[in-house]
Design a protein around this nucleic acid. Structure first.
Lengths: 141, 141
DNA sequence: CTCGATGCAAACAATTTGCAGGAGC
DNA sequence: GCTCCTGCAAATTGTTTGCATCGAG
């Protein structure tokens, strides 16, 4: 199952299954997010949802994406100050970030093995491991 | 050499060696940054520099830290949207981020080996590899 | 005197908060 | 009718830009 053949009914079910009250705004935002195969910023999501006529405010986009993230429906990826991507792929994986173009590309978990993990401080547990490999165009000397 | 016995004269020399014109504002910011053994935000750096009386504006703090980063005098570590830490330790290493307290702690490069690295897309090179392990207090069931 | 470098006020952008209105009980 | 939930306007916070000023040649 993946990013094709999403429809709003299916988004509604996913939200309900996750314990999120599926209001119309949330379904719209979820549909924009899941039906896209890309990594979108909050700004881009709002533009897609509001493409025809105003449906949601920016505040609602942020609040909703935060809510989704709390229910593991989306993953936040931070690459630059003030630049957060929302990744509908929530399974463990990592990212290439193209500094020049601003594009973000998945790295399957299997392609990047972390060898030794450091000892954790007592009474703590890992919430998430973020690996971002920043790439730039090779300099032409 | 490390985070004790910094003085402004030494900061001045470091800046000059790095090719950065050592103006008084830059020396003050560099001194606040290097003499601290912590990971500071732009806000905190400004507070330290301006503790007694106004010395620099916030804009200058941002511009100067950006300049330092470009000359590899400081490393930017992004952990949350709108939360950048400036790390005076520029040698390769990684970070624990305590979600609950907002603290950032170094992981020596030797404690976290990355096993396989994925193939890079053609004509690109790695600028930086960012690994942030987000930790939370272990839930008490 | 000229011109590039510098610092900062003001503009801009990203995110959060507080509260008015609405849905369910 | 009361209460909790929801969405958004407005406020806040983080960052960048454009320009006046300074200092070196």
């Amino acid at each position: 199952m993946n990013n094709n053949d999403w429809n709003k009914q299916r988004v509604l079910e996913v939200l309900r299954d996750a314990g999120v009250n599926p209001t119309s705004q949330r379904v719209e935002i979820g549909y924009a997010l899941f039906s896209s195969c890309a990594h979108l910023s909050a700004e881009e999501i709002m533009q897609r949802v509001n493409a025809d006529y105003p449906v949601v405010s920016k505040a609602t986009v942020y609040n909703t994406l935060g809510l989704f993230a709390g229910h593991a429906l989306v993953r936040e990826v931070i690459v630059e100050p003030g630049k957060v991507f929302y990744d509908p792929n929530v399974s463990p994986h990592h990212h290439f970030y193209y500094v020049d173009s601003g594009d973000l590309v998945d790295i399957p978990a299997s392609s990047l093995q972390i060898g030794t993990l450091p000892d954790l401080p007592p009474e703590t547990e890992v919430e998430k491991v973020e690996v971002v490999i920043r790439l730039r165009q090779r300099a032409t000397h």
